[in-house]
Design a protein around this nucleic acid. Sequence first.
DNA 1: ATCCAGATGCAAATGGTTTGCATCTGGATA
DNA 2: TATCCAGATGCAAACCATTTGCATCTGGAT
Lengths: 135, 135
Amino acid sequence: MNATRATELLRSAELRATTQRVLLLATLIAEAKPLSVDDLGLRTKNSLDTATIYRTLETFKEKGLVRRVDLDQGRALYEHAGEHHHHIVCTKCGTIRDLDICLPKTLQNQVREESRFAHVNQHALEFFGVCKKCV
Amino acid sequence: MNATRATELLRSAELRATTQRVLLLATLIAEAKPLSVDDLGLRTKNSLDTATIYRTLETFKEKGLVRRVDLDQGRALYEHAGEHHHHIVCTKCGTIRDLDICLPKTLQNQVREESRFAHVNQHALEFFGVCKKCV
DNA sequence: ATCCAGATGCAAATGGTTTGCATCTGGATA
DNA sequence: TATCCAGATGCAAACCATTTGCATCTGGAT
């Protein structure tokens, strides 16, 4: 069960381990993929108020427990924050797969130079395609 | 003036060159950066109905005249579709700068293999940082 | 067992985007 | 150039994800 793991994580993030937070975090850990607020509502059997889910996800994000992913225009997705990675999305069925790749350092340095920004902190990289089932 | 250029582009896209479309496309060409629906409303002196802007942008997108950029959670941005490129956004002031870089082919091939998708059609790559003015 | 700052639930408000419908117009045709 | 109509526009209402105000509840410290 991920409830104990979730509780531990909440404690180390200095957050009160409420029923709702444990449930949400455990769900995010269990599913291990980006979920929408609706998804989270369904997977927790609508036992949580929508506003609570939004507020909780925001809190989690601030503490680095989850990461927000913008794959979908229209609604936000959140995933348990493990290692930095990227995704590929099937434009037909919406399936999301994790990718174990990242940008080469050379490209990141190139951006630092070309942008003339003082800092380059992060990047979003998402791929879109058609999965085998949807060909 | 970009109006004639816009009219030409509309014609070759087989779209009726209405006053509104010419105005919108000319504005997108002139600004040469991602604009929100609100931005477009202001820059056209609120002479266009919001619904018209949304519908027109959707039409333009289908015809490949504009590209939608998701930099901002909350509202969509659209830019005149020139060459494929990416952006860097200042997380303090919101300034967007074009980047003349793209993913190395090797990485794209890596994604093709690792994803096991039938096709990989496109990617979104955005950088976030702090520009010199905002340090 | 008590207590209270912070968390939750509920409902209403917000803001971007979409849609139904009556009217208008670009541009093809005669 | 005048006519015509499919498609475009304007307006207002509807939608939907997200946020917010506020009264009540609760985790965990005392």
